[in-house]
Amino acid sequence: MSERTYRAIADPTRRAILDRLRQGPANANALAGNFVTSRPAISKHLRILRESGLVIDKPSGRERIYHLNAAPLGEVFGWLGDYRTFWQSSLDQLKRNLEEET
């Protein structure tokens, strides 16, 4: 279980950055323009996201372009997937029970 991944997505601003990067790569300026959070705070979030592997930065001229790398989220999806299956299976059972009565 990758603690870095979970920590990275535990923060709403970082999740918002990931959401933004889903639309395409961006540099730090463009990203900061999307948030009221201060530029240094955004840099810190980007560092945590880079360390988690969820964001990859590539140099382009004098700046860095940030890209989304969703691969580490696979683990998180596994965790959520268990809940998904629990509810799907339980709701199907509920339907069978209630409709069999009638």
Partner: peptide
């Protein structure tokens, strides 16, 4: 049958039946 969807970024499961 139930269809459940998981939203990874938000930690949400939604299902309807």
């Amino acid at each position: 049958t139930a269809r459940a969807i998981a939203d990874v970024t938000d930690g949400v499961i939604v299902a309807t039946i």
